[in-house]
């Protein structure tokens, strides 16, 4: 283990899960405004995981995926990542751009820009929800979009987390329009210390 683990009460952990679930739902809902389509979440489920197991939980460290990564300004140990398989990422682009399903078959400048904007919107709404509820303000960095092996995409975030913690919270998410649902993982990765600061700022005992 690393430093003395931060101790949370059951009430704090339950409130934290509720908070990030609501924040994730809000960020998915915000995609509707961005795309002009009725995008809804059908599943938003938080779960805890060892940092070293993150790549395996996403299908394997060498599995090729598309990641949209956001950091938090001035805070190196909080990362948000949206991870999709390439096929799903193309589907997401189709939804965002209002294209017929199956139109997008690769990632060019426009597709990367659309996914980056999705990261901006989702990250922004996610952090705004946390800020509104707790008074703890967090600003996202501009998004970074890349297609690579899952382990490589997340290495930077994992390395910074492994300096501080063994365990983080991830959120499994399913969302989409009535015609097309997609599976993705919304990885929210704050260090326990920051999580503790947010919960304390919120006043949950």
């Amino acid at each position: 283990m690393l430093q003395q683990p931060t101790k949370f009460t059951n009430s704090q952990l339950s409130s934290w899960d509720e908070l990030i679930t609501e924040a994730a739902k809000n960020s998915i809902q915000a995609l509707s405004d961005m795309s002009g389509q009725d995008i809804k979440s059908s599943l938003v489920k938080p779960y805890k995981i060892d940092v070293t197991d993150i790549p395996n939980s996403l299908g394997g460290a060498d599995k090729v995926a598309v990641g949209v990564l956001l950091g938090i300004e001035q805070i190196p140990s909080f990362h948000i990542a949206l991870i999709h398989s390439p096929k799903t990422a193309y589907q997401v682009v189709d939804i965002l751009m209002g294209y017929e399903s199956g139109t997008t078959v690769g990632l060019g400048e426009m597709e990367i820009s659309a996914l980056g904007e999705m990261g901006n919107i989702m990250g922004g709404y996610f952090l705004n929800t946390i800020g509104d509820k707790t008074g703890y303000e967090l600003k996202p960095t501009p998004p970074s979009v890349r297609m690579d092996m899952t382990g490589a995409i997340l290495d930077y975030a994992i390395a910074s987390l492994m300096m501080e913690t063994d365990e983080v919270t991830m959120i499994e998410a399913k969302y989409g329009t009535a015609e097309a649902q997609v599976d993705g993982v919304f990885a929210v990765m704050p260090s326990p210390e920051l999580q503790s600061q947010i919960i304390t700022s919120w006043g949950v005992k």
């Binding site: 190196p76 970074s144 290495d155 930077y156 390395a159």
Partner: peptide
């Protein structure tokens, strides 16, 4: 080099 381009000031 995998760090996001937007994270120049981050320690890692």
């Amino acid at each position: 080099h995998m760090a996001p381009a937007a994270a120049p000031s981050m320690p890692l």
